[in-house]
């Protein structure tokens, strides 16, 4: 287990390093940060001065290692637009995004796991068909459009919820629904598949044969085993959700990291964009790292291979 953990940790570090290098290169090669900072109207001399002041005239690799060294110590540079430290800026906005992410993934689980279990207990029944129908529909629904339709119906027609902002818990309801439904179909399908597989296993037949109550068989014996892959999928979906938060937070004007991403992208604020890509991918890397460890711990076959 220790060997597996170390190996997996090394991989995670290598992935993080590669992602940071690619995103750094992508952003800094395809644009001239000096022009972005000085503005379109600046003279050539001004641009040159900024270039030298910030060291943009150095080779890209030198700039990257310089940036990386600082990033390691938590310094992601200064935002061109907000004129503050990028790390402080992201840290401040991340709490809103985390609140949204946790409530959305909770919503998705509460919606999809019971539905998946119910569908698996009676395959091809009405409830199975409804579950399948909902997941097919859900996958085709563009989140930005779903968000707007919710605003039209819940806020404007029924006047139930506030349309935008992040002041009260009510502001989080619609964003939670929009972000959560996105992850629900995948979790539902995997729960259903897992339950179907487990329910046909020999030990379930044994449990039934020795006369255990159906509820005990279902929840204590079957669901526990079926839920193992669901846990790691949920971790992955949670990571993907941060990416989805850009669209959702922009529509509902929820001032989280996703909204910050949109703000900094439209303002050519490269250090902030670069910092956000790093934070978002680190988050995903850490989540999948723990999901893999959990899987290896639960299923010894993984760590031996």
């Amino acid at each position: 287990m220790l060997y597996y953990t170390l190996k997996r940790l090394g991989l995670a570090g290598l992935v993080a390093l590669t992602v940071s290098f690619i995103s750094f290169g992508l952003l800094y090669i395809s644009s001239d940060p000096a022009i972005a900072m000085a503005g379109e109207t600046a003279s050539d001399a001004d641009i040159e001065a900024i270039r030298q002041l910030y060291g943009f005239d150095r080779p890209i690799l030198v700039q990257y290692f310089d940036w990386l060294q600082r990033a390691m110590s938590g310094d992601l540079g200064k935002s061109y637009y907000f004129r503050t430290d990028v790390s402080a800026l992201i840290a401040e906005r991340l709490s809103t995004t985390m609140t949204l992410g946790v409530s959305a993934i909770t919503f998705a689980i509460v919606l999809s796991v019971p539905l998946g279990v119910a569908a698996a207990i009676r395959p091809n029944s009405l409830i199975d068909r409804i579950a399948l129908f909902l997941s097919v529909m859900g996958q085709a629904l563009p989140s930005f459009w779903f968000a707007l339709m919710l605003i039209v119906f819940l806020s404007v027609s029924l006047r139930l919820l506030p349309t935008s902002g992040s002041d009260t818990w009510q502001h989080f309801i619609m964003p939670t629904i929009v972000l959560g439904y996105y992850a629900a179909p995948a979790i539902m399908r995997l729960t259903r598949t897992g339950m179907l597989e487990v329910l046909s296993a020999d030990y379930i037949r044994t449990a039934r044969a020795k006369g255990l109550r159906p509820r005990v068989v279902l929840f204590k014996h079957a669901l526990r085993n079926a839920v193992i892959p669901v846990v790691s999928l949920t971790a992955v979906q949670f990571g993907f959700m941060l990416g989805g938060s850009i669209v959702v937070e922009t529509i509902f004007a929820l001032h989280g990291a996703g909204f910050l991403a949109w703000e900094s992208i439209t303002r050519n604020d490269l250090p902030t964009v670069q910092g956000l890509i790093l934070v978002f991918s680190l988050f995903y890397i850490v989540l999948t790292f723990f999901a893999d460890l959990l899987n290896a711990w639960l299923d010894p076959r993984i760590r031996i291979n």
């Binding site: 993080a16 992508l26 395809s30 990416g243």
Partner: peptide, 19 residues
């Protein structure tokens, strides 16, 4: 693994904004 770790929407938005 590297590709999956990169946030698609964020990277796509950033590249389109620059290019």
């Amino acid at each position: 693994t590297v590709r999956l770790s990169m946030p698609v929407v964020l990277v796509a938005l950033a590249v389109v904004a620059i290019v």
